[in-house]
């Protein structure tokens, strides 16, 4: 593992819905305007080293997809910066920089992410042609090469997305991303919409690409089992903040944040002994609204070990290799 490739420094992303006409009139008549801001990502910092796979785990609404899009240069951050090799992934405003082609994204739903009216070959070849990665004469061979890399025959280039199954479409989406020869692949739930047997095929494909192409990846998923299988390090996100970050085995075997512990306890495990009694220790309550996150530690409302300090004082991620953002982290083995 070598140099730092992606660096994310204090990135925040807030969404403010635009004020409706009715509210504008109400404001004009003197009623107080209520600003509703969604704090999707709140002061997040981490880095990804070259050749590393970083898993990003969290429940729906925790901001993991937004964070992925900020890093891919799709959303500009509200504060902070994301850089690749020291260059920002996005310029001022919405103007994309040359660096954005160095990060490519694979989305969850291959039924929505491929243009149904364009042949696969064009879908894959369009980006590399536009960016001069390949000349017009060689584009067929180039597309065939990337189709082969993801386990599809060269004839696939002449077909349309509807002629493929879900797993094959996801392979096409991966080929499209790889054909841009990116340094970093941001994968947002790439296997969530696939059946178990197809999911295994795509996970194996990612493992193969890692071995052969040394791809650096941010692998976003809600599935703790999949992330454990594929990642070098794992970041756990809760309500816009990273609560724990460390080497995969450390996070799964010795979680230090109460939320990580609770999340791991919530995952149903395969029961193969008839006398095994299945008991969950579900997390109490539900995710608070990101419109009005609680003060202090975001998790304190649901945390079994919360104390007075947690209600007022937001903990920060420490700088250790296995870092945790908690005032009262769990001791090993707890």
């Amino acid at each position: 593992m070598s140099a730092m490739l992606v660096d994310v420094v204090s990135v925040s992303k807030r969404f403010t819905p635009s004020v409706s006409v009715g509210e504008r009139i109400a404001a004009w008549l003197g009623s107080p305007v209520e600003t509703r801001t969604v704090h999707a990502v709140d002061d997040v910092s981490f880095h990804i080293r070259k050749g590393e796979v970083l898993g990003l785990v969290g429940e729906s609404g925790c901001g993991k997809s937004t964070l992925g899009r900020v890093i891919a240069g799709i959303h500009p951050p509200s504060a902070g910066r994301a850089t690749i090799d020291g260059l920002p992934v996005m310029g001022e405003g919405r103007k994309p920089l040359k660096t954005t082609t160095r990060i490519q994204m694979v989305f969850q739903d291959p039924f929505a992410s491929l243009d149904p009216r364009i042949r696969i070959g064009e879908t894959i070849g369009e980006g590399p042609l536009a960016h001069g990665l390949v000349g017009k004469a060689d584009v067929h061979a180039y597309v065939a090469q990337w189709l082969a890399a993801v386990g599809l025959p060269a004839e696939a280039a002449d077909r349309f997305p509807h002629q493929f199954s879900g797993g094959q479409r996801q392979r096409v989406a991966i080929a499209r991303a790889l054909a841009m020869q990116p340094d970093v692949l941001v994968c947002d739930e790439p296997v969530a919409s696939l059946d178990v047997s197809i999911q295994a095929q795509i996970i194996n494909l990612f493992l193969k690409l890692r071995r052969e192409l040394d791809v650096t990846m941010l692998f976003i998923s809600h599935d703790l089992g999949v992330v454990r299988h594929i990642s070098d390090r794992v970041a756990i996100m809760y309500l816009g903040r990273i609560v724990e970050l460390g080497p995969t085995a450390e996070i799964y075997d010795r979680p230090r944040h109460p939320y990580t512990r609770a999340l791991l306890d919530s995952v149903p495990k395969l029961v193969t002994g008839s006398d095994e009694l299945v008991t969950f220790k579900p997390i109490q309550g539900e995710l608070p609204s990101p419109l009005s996150p609680p003060p202090g530690c975001h998790f304190h409302l649901r945390c079994p070990s919360a104390q007075a300090r947690c209600r007022t004082d937001a903990p920060r991620l420490d700088a250790a290799a296995h870092s945790v953002s908690c005032h009262f982290p769990l001791a090993a083995g707890e």
């Binding site: 199954s165 797993g167 094959q168 178990v196 047997s197 197809i198 999911q199 295994a200 095929q201 996970i203 194996n204 493992l207 193969k208 089992g225 999949v226 454990r228 299988h229 594929i230 995969t248 085995a249 395969l270």
Partner: peptide
Amino acid sequence: LLNSLPGIAEPGQDLVQIRGA
């Protein structure tokens, strides 16, 4: 189906997949 589940194989090892669809 059982072998396709991550968690049966060691992390980082190829999963035993069912071929085809």
